[in-house]
Design a protein around this nucleic acid. Structure first.
Lengths: 215, 215
DNA sequence: ACAGATTTGAACTCATGGGTTCAACTTAAC
DNA sequence: GTTAAGTTGAACCCATGAGTTCAAATCTGT
């Protein structure tokens, strides 16, 4: 009997290959044979671990989104203890969030999710529902702490979080709808997003870009 | 011989039906027979007017995006002569832009465009390229005029336009990834977006939401 | 009414790919 | 070595749907 560890490895390899191939071809064009090849495995093995093409898709997508969310949350943790230079740490975190967002795998998963909502309505719970807006809400938590500490205006933290994320991802998706932009451009976008965000949400004696008014 | 007008009508009916069915099923799942039925036409007629399923898709998508862009541009024209209450007219225009963006047909076209970029890379010219960023650039033009008239800060108009659009569409897409939100929520989002936008881009003696600081 | 172009419905060909079957084979535990 | 679970490759069945063919029906300008 093959060891349990070996089974898990095969299953994981299949799920990874599935995401890769689905990303490359889309759901319909991806054929199970190609996924099996990509995983270095025979076709019946795929059906042995994951009964359907449909459940294969579902499992692969949930795993991939889980990983992506985890990466975002890890990045957000750096906002827990912002030093004294809020703008700088915000820019760093924003840039990293944007890197996650523009990562090739992330783009592919979002595209698939977006494309196949008609056929897999249950997958919408990955982006909506309880575990859905996790990233936005985690950011909102951080922003709320910052507001309470007097470092941001007292505004609805959920709204602020949504808008900051929009300022980051909107321009990026608009200018580079397909492939990932060079890191320089990401930095430019992140810088501009944080600048606009701070102009709108900085603490009430407004501290604008260059000059700080009475610390 | 059927009149030339009749031919055009049939072709148009086919293109409309194509968008409808592609939106409903996605490219692969949509079968030509169903499109023919939806258009009230026989299958060979479809192949008579549009040689391929692929070219059918291409033609339908270009027509649909053209119409959508036109609607956006018409809405933007109302920014040409903003009365004295900039915030109000901005909110109105923003709400209408958002309505266009969230329109069912618009969503479907964006989804299809996004989903089939792998198979139809040439369709990317609809969203990028010369005729691509037309809406953003038209908005940038309006904002540039407003800045020159001293009613907005002197900032890069393209950036401002991108960010305003991001503030509008980002939250909307985040909260209602599939169907169109109720109009009340659109208004809330538009209001919040314009508020943040004006906080960041209002003319230099900053006039914030309620109170004007030393005119 | 006539002619030329178009449309129609139905049947047809053909390629693709999901899913299954099965006998041979590998692997790890005992 | 034996055993049992798991894997493999190849062949297979079958549904689906793109695209074509064609004779009959329909339309339109004159």
């Amino acid at each position: 009997m093959p060891t349990a560890r070996g089974r898990i490895d095969k299953r994981q390899a299949i799920l990874d290959a599935a995401i890769t191939v689905f990303a490359r071809r889309g759901y319909d064009q991806a054929c199970v044979q190609e996924i099996a090849d990509e995983a270095g495995v025979a076709k019946p093995t795929v059906y042995n671990h994951l009964t359907d093409k449909a459940t294969l898709f579902r499992e692969a997508m949930t795993a991939a989104t889980g990983a992506a969310v985890a990466r975002h949350l890890a990045t957000l943790d750096r906002l827990a203890v912002p030093g004294d230079d809020l703008r700088t740490v915000l820019e760093e975190v924003a840039l990293d969030l944007l890197r996650c967002h523009c990562d090739e795998r992330s783009r592919a998963v979002r595209r698939l999710l977006h494309a196949e909502t008609a056929r897999f309505p249950d997958l919408l719970s990955l982006v909506r529902g309880p575990s859905g807006h996790r990233v936005t809400e985690a950011l909102a938590d951080r922003l709320a702490r910052l507001a309470l500490a007097g470092r941001l205006r007292g505004a609805d933290p959920s709204l602020a979080a949504e808008q900051l994320i929009a300022l980051l991802t909107g321009p990026a998706d608009l200018r580079w709808p397909v492939s990932s932009p060079p890191d320089d451009d990401l930095a430019t976008i992140a810088h501009a997003a944080v600048d606009t965000f701070l102009r709108a949400f900085a603490a009430d004696p407004p501290v604008s870009q260059e000059r700080a008014i009475h610390t």
